[in-house]
Nucleic acid binder design. Structure first.
Lengths: 225, 225
DNA sequence: GTCAACCTTTTCGTATACAAGAAGCATGAC
DNA sequence: GTCATGCTTCTTGTATACGAAAAGGTTGAC
C-alpha cells in the first residue's frame, strides 16, 4: 500500500509557489495578519505577478489567507477559539476514521500500522521529537487510509495539514511525548481487536487532548506577555 | 440570528463567474467529464481568459473540476463510490453537529429550529418538493450553526453544497418526503430534549439513508441503461 | 489649529501578447 | 496495409501592459 500523503506533485510554477507559500505560512515565516505583497514575491521567486496571484487563490481557498478587494491578501489570523474549533472537528474526524478502520481494516494493514507505531516508539525512546513528529504524522495518515473511505481520508489529511503547526508545539510539553505514545498503543490495540467504538473514543480523546494542550500553551504564552 | 448560508457576496467578476460556473456544473449544464474551454467561456461572459482562469482555480480547489496540466479543466467525474463516501462523511459530520447542538443550543435557537421545521412540514404537506428542498437546506444549516462550532459549521456547509444535486434527486422517491419529515421531527425532539447521542444517531441515519437512496436511484438508472 | 477635499501614489483586477507543450493528422517507410 | 515520425495547430501557462479604485499625504479654507 502506498501512502501518498502529498499526492499532487506540483505541476506548474504557480502550484509550486502555492506549496512554498503554504509551507512558509504554516512554519511561521509570515506571521498572522501579515500582508503578502504580489510584487515583492514575484521578484523573489523570479516570476511575474500572474503565478503569484494564482497561488494566492489556492491559499485563499484553503483558508490560509484572506483576500480583501483592492487591499491585498493577508495571512489569516486564526484566533485561539477557531483553532480549538478545528481541533474539535479533527478529533471527531479521527474518531470516525478509527471507528471505520476497526471495522474495515485488513490484517495486513493493521500489521503496517503496528510497524509505523513501532517507529514512533523508537523515536519517542530516543527523545527525538522531530522524528516522532514525522512518524506520528504517518501513523495518523495511515489510520485515515484504513477507514476505507478515500474522501474521508482526504478531508482528514487536509485538516491535519492545517493544524500542523499547533500540533507540533504541544509535543514540547513535559511528558506529552510519552503520553501520546501510550495513547497510540491503545489505539492500535482497539483497531486490531475490531472494537469500533473503543477506537473512536480513544482517537477522539487523543486529538482532543491536543486541543487542550494547545489551549494550555496559549494561556501560558499570554501570561508571559 | 442571521443565517448567511451564502456569506460571500461576489466581489470581483472572476468570483461571480466562479459562482455561475459552479451552479451550472451542479445543475448539470456541464456534464461530468466535459471539458471547460477557457476561450469560449471567456467569449460567452464577455471577459478575457484571466477571470475565467481564476474562476477555474476556485472550482478546482472546491473539487468540482480537475485541472490537467497542458490539457485543460474537466468537470470532475464523481464515481458513485465517491459520492457514497461523501454521504458517509456528511452523515458523520451532521451527527457531530447534532451531538454538539443537543449539548449547547439555547432555548431560543431551538425555537427557531422548530419554526424552520414547521415550514418544512408545510411544504411537505403541500407536496411542494422545491420548497421542501429549500427549507430542508435551511433546517440542516441551522443545525450546523447550533453546534456552536463555526469551523464545523463551515465544513458541513461546504460538503452539503457539494452534495446538493444528489440530495435532491432522492426526494422524488415515493414516500421519501414524508419519511424525511418524520426524521426531522425526531431530530428536533432529541436536540430539544438535550439528548446528544440520540440526536447524533438520528442525524447520522437521516443522512446515511440519503446515501442509500442515492445508491438506489443509481442502480435503477443503470438498469434502464 | 483643525478638518476636509483633492491629488498622487500604490496596488489590485483585467486584457492582451507571447511562448511552450501536447494532441491530432498526414505522410512516408517498411 | 500498418506503424512511426514529423509537422501543424490548438490550448494552456506566463509575462506584461493598462485601467480603476482605494489609501495616504498635502494643501487650502474656515
Amino acid at each position: 500500500m502506498t501512502l501518498d500523503i502529498e499526492p499532487a506533485e506540483p505541476r506548474s510554477r504557480s502550484d509550486q509557489i502555492a506549496q512554498i507559500l503554504e509551507d512558509q505560512i504554516l512554519t511561521g515565516r509570515f506571521s498572522p495578519g501579515a500582508r503578502l505583497d504580489e510584487a515583492s514575491l514575484a521578484e523573489e521567486h523570479k516570476v511575474s505577478r500572474t503565478p503569484i496571484r494564482e497561488a494566492f487563490h489556492r491559499l485563499a481557498q484553503s483558508g490560509l489567507v484572506v483576500q480583501q478587494p483592492r487591499r491585498g491578501v493577508f495571512v489569516r489570523i486564526s484566533s485561539p477559539v477557531e483553532i480549538l474549533e478545528m481541533f474539535e472537528v479533527m478529533a471527531e474526524l479521527e474518531a470516525v476514521c478509527g471507528r471505520l478502520a476497526a471495522k474495515r481494516a485488513t490484517e495486513a494493514a493493521i500489521e503496517e500500522l503496528r510497524e509505523v507505531n513501532a517507529e514512533c516508539h523508537a523515536a519517542c525512546d530516543a527523545g527525538d521529537i522531530d522524528r516522532y513528529y514525522l512518524k506520528n504524522g504517518v501513523f495518523h495518515h495511515l489510520i485515515y487510509a484504513l477507514s476505507g473511505n478515500r474522501f474521508l481520508e482526504q478531508e482528514a489529511s487536509r485538516l491535519h495539514r492545517r493544524l500542523k503547526p499547533y500540533r507540533r508545539m504541544q509535543l514540547f510539553l513535559r511528558g506529552r511525548l510519552q503520553q501520546s505514545m501510550d495513547e497510540h498503543e491503545s489505539i492500535v490495540e482497539a483497531i486490531s481487536a475490531g472494537a469500533p467504538e473503543r477506537a473512536a473514543e480513544l482517537l477522539r480523546d487523543h486529538v482532543a487532548v491536543q486541543g487542550e494542550k494547545f489551549h494550555h500553551v496559549m494561556s501560558h504564552l499570554e501570561q508571559q506577555g
